[in-house]
Amino acid sequence: MRQYAALSRRAVVNLLRQPTSVVPSLLFPLLFLALTSSAFDRSTALPGFPQVESFLQFVVATTIVQGALFGSIAAGSDMATDIEDGFFDRLVASPVARTSILVGRVMGSMVFGFMQAWLFFGITSLFGLNVRSGIIGMAAISLVSALLAGGIGAVSVAFALRTGSAEAVRGAFPLLFSFLFLSSAFFPRDLMNGWFKSVASLNPLSYMIEGLRSQVITGLDAGGLAAAAGVAFGILVVGTSAAGLALSRRLTANF
């Protein structure tokens, strides 16, 4: 158990000591938040737009999801760097449990996702954000953010284990961005039409963001929370399985 904790701690330390990998993933969502909440504030008056105090209140859930998505790529690129540098071999040559190599990264990513959500709440509350569901809702959102960060972290770790290249892992960034953009991240689905609406309705991220959003704009909502947690947990399960498979493939490829 201590091995899992130690490797998770290392993953977090990795993130915190590499400002160049964390800061963009923090700043980018905040920048988006600032841009959209000033540019689209009037759109909240459109018929069909949910009842909100401000666009900021509408979009903050997106910011948190975006941060979790982008920040978690670091789990994969750090893992790939370990492979490139040979730190991975150091771990493999020690009697450490094989799963802890993977779990450490995923846990590190979860800690990151959790802390980042609180950071975003802190910053946006300075700009007058009101979370209807209060501190309990914020805690719930942070936990879902942690789950999601773990899930995307696991997916990127799987990718890292397959490719062994940090460059390739970072190359997945635009893919994640499209994934996010093709959802109800920035607009309510009720205001969309055509193929965009169909795609957004197929995108599980829509349900996750809407579930979290409803905690912010209407108040504690068990159904929405369950949907959001469900999506995040699904990604975590799929990601961890893929990463587990990729790890055992890598270990047996040479071995």
Binding site: V13, N14, D85, G86, F87, R90, A93
Partner: peptide, 12 residues
């Protein structure tokens, strides 16, 4: 084991 190419994590 001290491997030939095993870098040591520079951040720690």
């Amino acid at each position: 084991v001290a491997l030939q190419d095993a870098a040591i994590d520079p951040l720690m």
